[in-house]
Each structure stands twice: as structure tokens, then as C-alpha cells.
């Protein structure tokens, strides 16, 4: 059981609203039909930031030991990085 201090409901609500706003931003970029290197990197960065927010604040990994946060952060960096490399190869 996680003995970390529970975060306040207001904090969770703010995180939820930020996640909603970032989803709307992602959808809007898709609707406008933007493409290209910078758009791809922006969308990928938004996705990784959102996922990291879910892990840190909703999953409550923020207060766990560095090992677990490191595994989660490393996962998003490696997966996001490899996807970005593949997309850049496709645009070359």
C-alpha cells in the first residue's frame, strides 16, 4: 500500500482539466490538418507530457522512489524518441 500523503482533490481536478485542455489542443491540431516536422514533434511531446502527468499525479508515482519514476520517465522518453526518429525517417 502506498503510504504517501494523499494529494488534495483540488490538485487532482486541476490536473484533470489540464489533461482535457491538452486533448482538445491535440484534436484541434488534427482538425486544422496541420502536418510536418514541428507539428509531429509538438503532438508527440503533448502525448508524452500527458502520459507522464497521468503516471505522476493520477497514478501517484510522484512520491515514489526514483527507480519507479525513472522507469516510467525512461519509457516515455524511449518510446516517444523512437517514434519521432521513425517519423523523421519517413519525412526525409
Amino acid at each position: 500500500m502506498n503510504k504517501a500523503k494523499p494529494q488534495s482533490n483540488l490538485f487532482s481536478t486541476v490536473i484533470w482539466l489540464i489533461l482535457i485542455a491538452l486533448t482538445v489542443a491535440t484534436f484541434s491540431i488534427g482538425e486544422v490538418g496541420l502536418s510536418g516536422k514541428s507539428t509531429m514533434l509538438t503532438l508527440l511531446a503533448i502525448a508524452m507530457i500527458k502520459s507522464q502527468m497521468v503516471a505522476n499525479y493520477l497514478m501517484a508515482l510522484r512520491q515514489t522512489r526514483l527507480l519507479w519514476r525513472g522507469i516510467m520517465f525512461g519509457y516515455f522518453v524511449i518510446v516517444g524518441g523512437l517514434i519521432a526518429i521513425a517519423y523523421l525517417m519517413g519525412q526525409a
Binding site: 491540431i29 502536418s35 509531429m40 503532438l43 508527440l44 517514434i83
Partner: peptide, 12 residues
């Protein structure tokens, strides 16, 4: 899903 959605539906 947060990763899957832009990857499959949006990023081009």
C-alpha cells in the same frame, strides 16, 4: 490510449 490516439488518429 493517450499515446495511441495521436499516433494512429492525428500525427501525419
Amino acid at each position: 490510449w493517450i499515446i495511441l490516439f495521436p499516433l494512429i488518429y492525428i500525427i501525419r
